[in-house]
Design a protein around this nucleic acid. Sequence first.
DNA 1: ACCTTCGTTCGATAATCGACAAACATCGAA
DNA 2: TTCGATGTTTGTCGATTATCGAACGAAGGT
Lengths: 105, 105
Amino acid sequence: MLTRVLAALSDPIRLGLVRLLADGQERGWGELRAPVAKSTLSHHLKVLRDAGVTRTRQEGTRCFVQLRRTDLDNRFPQLMEALLSVAATDDIGGDVTAARRDAPR
Amino acid sequence: MLTRVLAALSDPIRLGLVRLLADGQERGWGELRAPVAKSTLSHHLKVLRDAGVTRTRQEGTRCFVQLRRTDLDNRFPQLMEALLSVAATDDIGGDVTAARRDAPR
DNA sequence: ACCTTCGTTCGATAATCGACAAACATCGAA
DNA sequence: TTCGATGTTTGTCGATTATCGAACGAAGGT
């Protein structure tokens, strides 16, 4: 549902997460750095997952998040491109980053 | 703010209103037909106005609503185009219509 | 002046949301 | 098997949201 996706992306932190994943690279949950508690981050990732924006893969005790770019592009042509472009220009969710893969939490 | 616009458009009724106004034509408030009370409709129009999506012109005792298409296209290139295309395909907010200009309320 | 129309604003209510800490579940390592 | 690391779930808080009906204020018409 389009409205679901728009609601999911109408939060700066979630949009920041999407920006971070925009290169198509899978990211480890533990790499993600956002100015919220981990339970809140888990919540945001669940919202994105439930809206069909991201996919989560579990591997042992840790999991990896990925943007469902091709699915989104099929269902909502041009939308992510337009969105990511504006979000980058305005640096929305710029406080969401990724730590080095071997960085301590 | 992008997130503000996304939040504004994440409601089916508001997206329906935007679809209705997508042709650039100005519409009389009284023409608008949505399955909500008039106070609720007023609220939705205020949300769209405050997000910079629409403009309202008052003329005497009635007012006219218009999509700020060129402003939106300048600020958020390609966004409305992508959004309106998907919304049309999925018929989101299809229960929002416009009555004939001389129709009774 | 009075009434009507039009849209906004005001409460009220129920639902949802973002945030946190704390408890929990799972899995690998020691 | 005990421990530690990793995410999720739960409970709670305050803020926001969608909705309604009713009251309101501004114009215009009678």
